[in-house]
């Protein structure tokens, strides 16, 4: 069954309960376990790493400070100074997604962000924050987001329709982008891994040729590392851009 598992590229996305034999409403599953691991890893970096609070930082503290300054400059750059009130939110989001993606690259682990429900929950949370904050801050003026100024009245209904559709599609594109990238990358890695196993078992000549998919796995892993970091960054920066709409709706 182990060999068959290696070939089945979908098996890695299965949700496996730990303490019961079926998946209930709040069952602790492998997905839950890796969410806890992600939070523990981020907390270790950000809390244990900075516990000495030294003036001249060590390795962990340096990494924690870099993460802080990177996200802070991203938030400040795309959502302005006022956007810094959402800094803890964007930071938590970025670190959660980044660590989920990176931990998921380790063999035999589970990738939290390869589940559409997780990425969609994040996207819905972002859009929910945008809508709630925008309405709280600007009231009905927030709806000007859908009514750009300087458009002729004839075109206005179409423009408003387009703006509404683009706003509604945001959580979908935000969630599907991350989910699809993770899913596709992991399936590709698994498929190439399956090639290696198959070719090793099929004969001497193919066993020698199995070095080719193995090399492809190495390259793909490097590529997936890039994708993991890049998608976390894209998720964070788009969150900032949407939050900027909530802060300054009259663009």
């Amino acid at each position: 069954m182990a060999a068959e598992n290696a070939i089945d590229p979908i098996h890695q996305f299965n949700i496996v309960p730990f303490f019961s034999d079926h998946v209930g409403t709040a069952t602790f599953t492998n997905a839950s376990l890796f969410m806890v691991i992600v939070v523990a890893a981020v907390s270790f970096l950000m809390i244990v790493g900075t516990s000495s609070q030294s003036l001249v930082p060590g390795r962990l503290q340096s990494a924690a400070e870099m993460a802080y300054e990177f996200v802070a400059s991203t938030v400040r750059g795309s959502a302005g100074h006022e956007g810094m009130r959402f800094f803890p939110f964007v930071f938590s989001l970025f670190m959660f997604v980044l660590f989920s993606n990176l931990i998921g690259l380790v063999p035999y682990t589970f990738t939290v962000t390869s589940q559409i429900i997780v990425t969609f929950a994040f996207a819905a949370l972002v859009i929910g924050v945008v809508i709630v904050y925008g309405l709280m801050r600007h009231g009905s003026h927030f709806l000007h987001l859908f009514v750009p100024s300087g458009v002729s009245p004839i075109l206005m209904p179409f423009i408003v329709l387009i703006e509404v559709i683009s706003f509604i599609s945001r959580p979908i594109s935000l969630s599907v982008r991350l989910f699809a990238n993770m899913l596709a990358g992991h399936i590709t890695l698994k498929v190439f891994g399956g090639f290696v196993t198959l070719m090793l078992g099929a004969g001497a000549l193919t066993a020698v040729a199995s070095i080719l998919p193995l090399a492809a796995i190495v390259l793909l892993t490097a590529f997936e590392l890039l994708v993991a970091v890049l998608q976390a960054y894209v998720f964070a920066i788009l969150t900032c851009v949407y939050l900027n709409d909530a802060i300054h709706p009259g663009h």
Partner: peptide, 18 residues
Amino acid sequence: APQLVWLAITFGALYFLM
């Protein structure tokens, strides 16, 4: 459902800690 519940718990904890 279980993923949403655990995501809410873990992400809430992460947000609080951060």
